[in-house]
């Protein structure tokens, strides 16, 4: 399955890259890990005149902790490098767990975290967890840079808030506070290699009294974009998270998702699974938060 011919551009500095992006505009596609882009090209979903390979750009592959304590993942860091990083395994273990559920080791060797987010696919695993963890992205362009919460990144079906000329440079994941827990649950009943029918992520932080003082929920596979379950969050905020309460609250997700029936399930089934796996994710995050204890201060 040969690709349609294109020009291949390999900028070695951000400035050069921005110049090429300006020159080629929408006729060029940015190439990072390429796992999603190549599939698009092969299926004829895109036929760009040029590919701009980002992999020769310096400084976009780091995995480190910033001065504010947040995890900083360079956009070109591959899933595999992130899941393998001792720093991630120790301090953001749910991130490593989630990444291990993405496709296969081979794809994770190639696919980058930045590419994953820019692809804007509502069925991918990383976005829900990054939503729940309140991650943000640093976006650079000729005119400077801006920080954008992941929560505002996804605008529509395969579309993001990135403007022409902007490049996603880094993903920032805040440090996990004491008495918090987070998890991503992937429901893919046909094969563990499959995309999720529904993916659900939860972040929960407890007050000393056991009440939930902070909670965010992210979902994959149930709307044109990855989404937060805000009504469910609101119903649980400040509450003691009992099983019946969580069950009742999870039902509220009904109004804020818009699943499409496809080969991974009907819309109705996805709604039911969204409720179920939100419920299970909250329970697991809660368990982890409780087990986490007061934590380091």
């Amino acid at each position: 399955m040969a690709l349609w011919p294109f020009d291949y551009l390999e900028p070695t500095s951000p400035e050069e890259c921005f110049a090429l992006m300006a020159e080629h505009g929408s006729e060029a596609k940015l190439l990072a890990g390429g796992t999603a882009l190549m599939q698009f090209l092969k299926q004829g979903l895109a036929r760009p005149r040029a590919l701009i390979n980002l992999k020769r750009l310096p400084g976009l592959g780091g995995i480190e902790v910033g001065p504010e304590g947040a995890l900083r993942l360079g956009a070109l860091a591959t899933h595999r490098r992130i899941e393998d990083a001792p720093l991630v395994r120790e301090r953001w273990p749910m991130l490593a767990e989630m990444l291990q559920l993405v496709a296969s080791p081979r794809i994770r060797n190639m696919a980058t975290i930045g590419g994953n987010l820019c692809h804007g696919d509502a069925n991918e695993d990383p976005p829900p967890l990054l939503l729940a963890l309140d991650a943000s992205v640093r976006v650079i362009s000729r005119v400077g840079e801006r920080l954008l919460p992941v929560d505002g990144l996804f605008t529509d079906f395969y579309e993001t808030a990135l403007k022409p000329g902007e490049l996603l440079a880094e993903v920032r994941v805040p440090p996990l506070p004491p008495r918090s827990g987070a998890v991503y649950l992937k429901f893919a009943p046909k094969s563990r290699q499959d995309f999720a029918t529904v993916g659900a992520a939860a972040f929960v932080r407890l007050a000393d009294a056991g009440r939930c003082v902070e909670l965010r929920l992210g979902l994959a596979g149930v709307a044109p974009t990855p989404v937060r379950a805000r009504k469910v969050e609101a119903a649980l905020q400040g509450q003691l998270l009992s099983e019946p309460l969580v069950r009742e609250a999870a039902a509220l997700v009904e109004d804020e998702i818009d699943p499409v029936g496809d080969i991974r399930g009907s819309a109705g089934y996805k709604r039911e699974m969204a409720k179920l796996f939100l419920r299970r994710a909250v329970a697991e995050a809660l368990r982890r938060a409780g087990a986490a204890g007061p934590g380091p201060t």
Partner: peptide
Amino acid sequence: GIGVCGACTVLVDGQAVSSCLAL
């Protein structure tokens, strides 16, 4: 042809990749 089956797996600098998705 889309990186799912693994028949095209080769190692690039020691890492397994799908050579059908790599330029």
